[in-house]
Amino acid sequence: MGKAASRSSALQARAIATLWRVLAGRRLATLWRLARLVGPLVHRFSRREREVTAANLAAVYPDRGADERRRLARQSLTHSAATMLEIGFAWQGAPERVEASILAVHGRELLDEARAEGRGVIVLAPHFGNWEVLNFWLSSHFPFTAMYEPPKIAELDAVTRAGRERMGASLVPTNPRGVAALLKALKRSEAIGILPDQEPDWGSGVFAPFFGRLAYTATLLPKLVARTQARVVTGVARRLPGRGFEIHFLPADERVYAADEAESATGVNACVEAAIALDPAQYQWEYKRYRKVIQEQEGHPEHRRFRIY
């Protein structure tokens, strides 16, 4: 990276970090009002976000009318804007304020029962609602480990790490060393977090149905379950616009426990679908979930394989 690019990156990081720090003290009602202003602007002026969201919604909800899908797309981008605006609140807001914003926790007994049985808990945390608030709650109440990939803007790494680790979460890298740390945490009957809706590298997943269409899905989960007998739950922080959040822990689809990787991946995607059903507008539809299906059709080769040693 050249000096000019490095300076630009540093300035960008400083501006973003300052914005988060300023927004950390704002009321959730204020942040939601800002999101209602920003979301429509993203829909209007960000072609990439608008088109990917529209394509995903057309793929998963083909029976809904075009007008209904457009409304859902605008609502989804507003919720995505809210998540970005709430990062300062989740990472830097006074812990008692963040805790007070969590108005209800549904399904906590799923975690408590597993730990009482001496079993670890794998929390599947899709990009729904505000996953940073979910991380805050989990790391406040349980020994919690999650994989972490540094942000694209390297200068934001320290801010991101501090925000996610401040309540005690342990962040581990997305490599075999990180997987080993997840295994150790599960064997200690602790909780870990897995992102179930990001496409893995070639060789690290299988194609499995997601809303009836094939999506490349990670196969890390069945490997972890086979080695630890952990319980799997889905966890989300559902936004109550302008008021706070409700944490939901949902029982996993039983197929996640299958030894067959394709069947387990199908169960993982079913878990994500169940979370989305809570409020489809709160899912991050601007992610290209079906990208590798297109690459497969175009004959892209496999890359490195992700293994547990």
Rank of each mutant, 00 (worst) to 15 (best):
A58V: 00
A59Q: 11
A59T: 10
Y61H: 11
Y61V: 04
P62G: 11
P62T: 04
R64M: 04
G65H: 03
G65K: 05
A66W: 05
A66P: 09
D67P: 10
E68A: 11
E68I: 06
E68M: 07
E68F: 07
R69K: 02
R69C: 01
R70E: 05
R70C: 00
R71F: 01
R71A: 01
R71Q: 05
L72V: 01
L72K: 03
R74G: 05
Q75A: 15
Q75N: 12
S76D: 06
L77W: 06
T78S: 00
H79Q: 15
H79C: 11
S80Q: 13
T83I: 07
M84V: 15
L85T: 03
L85S: 04
L85H: 00
E86D: 10
G88W: 01
F89A: 08
Q92G: 07
Q92A: 14
G93M: 02
A94K: 12
P95E: 02
P95A: 02
R97W: 02
R97P: 03
E99P: 10
A100V: 05
A100E: 13
A100L: 03
I102S: 05
A104S: 10
V105I: 12
V105Y: 08
H106N: 14
G107P: 08
G107I: 05
E109A: 09
E109D: 15
E109R: 10
L111I: 11
L111E: 01
A114W: 05
A116L: 15
A116V: 14
E117T: 14
E117H: 13
E117Y: 08
G118C: 09
R119L: 11
R119F: 01
R119E: 08
G120M: 03
G120V: 07
G120Y: 04
V121R: 00
V121D: 00
V123N: 04
V123R: 00
L124C: 12
L124A: 13
P126Y: 11
P126L: 12
H127V: 14
H127W: 12
H127S: 10
F128R: 12
F128C: 13
F128L: 14
N130F: 15
N130C: 15
W131Y: 14
W131A: 08
W131K: 10
E132N: 10
E132S: 08
V133R: 13
F136N: 00
F136T: 02
F136I: 06
W137T: 04
L138N: 04
S139F: 01
S139V: 00
S139C: 00
H141F: 07
H141L: 06
F142I: 07
F142T: 02
